[in-house]
Design a protein around this nucleic acid. Structure first.
Length: 361
DNA sequence: AACACGGGGAT
DNA sequence: ATCCCAGTGTT
């Protein structure tokens, strides 16, 4: 077992003298801003979230402005950041605090933990950073640092591991300066005790680090869960009629919930569309005699955490809006209206990347 | 307890 | 290719 006190004092000493990491939200005490930063940073690299944080606070500088915002405007700011349920919960919780706490962010750990989108990590971060309360954060950085200094190979994603690391984190927390300590251990994990190629030779804690002593640094922390992946085939039909295009909001319980998309046909395998097959499909399904396919492109595949999305983009032109395409969430919109809506990267990529020449069959 | 949820950067 | 990132909600 490691000598608890020494790690804490080593870390605080390192933070005071050698930690030069700077971030826009560091030292922030406004719980609204800290909350926004922590939600943005969930499972997201600091560098990736940085600009999103700054843009978010310009448009929604306080909780009131967020509570009164339109959903799609907030999602537009979140566009491209991923994990869109974070955005949904952010809106929901802003309105909840506005309605139930008179717009003032709660300061009690349990109250904060009960809010949608806020789990143990984010609640601990908010109360320690803003109110200096003694709650230890436990994120990917902390798991890694604690696993290595203790030399523990219990999987960090097992139930047993979570309990064990929670206890150790609570024990090592600096109870006088919990906010400083929490910030320090995450900075330390991000800059010294990195996942790959950690800077062990320069590490101020290498003399008490069990993993370093036993040359186990490269195998810790241990994870037990293996990611399952699947391929999905999305064929998008960009259907235009009377100067407008068919768009719908993704409301189903699936990826990209609350983002928008074009008319989608998902197939269990590569559909290998060609002009004739698509024409037949639409003529039979829609009872339409005439349609024009102006273009078919192969989509750039997109790798998500559990899924690989592949597919096609097909442009169709109708002389008038087909009745059968007026479904529940479907809307016919102008290009201007469409440009203000949030879309998945899979779709934005298609429109932003040069397609010369179009990848035809 | 197991699983889904995005996108990007490093190795 | 693979891993992992200032995790959380759902089933």
């Amino acid at each position: 077992m490691i000598r608890d006190k020494s790690f804490t004092s080593i870390l605080m000493q390192w933070d005071k003298n050698e930690n030069h990491r700077k971030m826009p939200w560091k030292g922030e005490k406004d719980p609204y801003k800290v909350w926004v930063s922590e939600i943005i940073l969930q499972q997201t690299r600091v560098e990736q979230g940085w600009m999103y944080y700054e843009r978010f606070l310009i448009q929604f500088p306080d909780l009131i402005s967020l509570a009164k915002a339109k959903d799609d405007d907030v999602f537009k700011l979140w566009e491209g950041l991923g994990y869109y349920s974070r955005c949904k919960n952010l809106i929901h919780t802003a309105r909840y605090i506005y309605d139930n706490y008179e717009g003032k962010f709660p300061e009690n750990y349990e109250d904060i933990l009960s809010l949608k989108g806020i789990g143990p990590y984010t609640a601990a971060a908010i109360v320690s950073f803003c109110f200096n309360k003694p709650y230890a954060v436990l994120d990917g950085n902390v798991f890694r640092v604690l696993s290595r200094i203790s030399g523990n190979s219990i999987p960090i994603d097992s139930a047993e591991g979570k309990i064990w690391y929670t206890k150790l984190a609570d024990k090592l927390l600096d109870k006088i300066l919990p906010g400083k300590y929490n910030q320090a251990i995450m900075d330390f994990g991000a800059t010294i005790c990195k996942p790959m190629l950690p800077l062990c030779a320069a590490c101020p804690a290498n003399n008490i680090c069990v993993a370093y002593d036993k040359t186990m640094v490269n195998i810790l922390p241990v994870k037990e869960k293996v990611l399952k992946k699947r391929i999905r085939w999305f064929s998008y039909f960009i259907i235009k009629a009377e100067g407008k295009v068919l768009v719908r909001k993704r409301t189903e319980n699936d990826i990209w919930q609350n983002l928008f998309e074009y008319f989608l046909i998902e197939t269990p395998a590569n559909p290998e569309w060609d002009f004739s097959a698509i024409s037949t499909l639409f003529k039979t399904q829609l009872g339409i005699n005439h349609l024009t396919i102006s273009n078919i492109s192969v989509a750039k595949p997109q790798q998500l955490t559990h899924q690989l999305i592949k597919g096609y983009f097909v442009h169709l032109e109708f002389s008038s809006m087909p009745e059968v395409l007026k479904s529940k969430n479907a809307m016919w919109l102008t290009d201007t209206a469409v440009s203000n809506l949030p879309f998945p990267k899979f779709i934005n990529e298609y429109f932003s990347s040069p397609k010369s020449p179009p990848a035809l069959f």
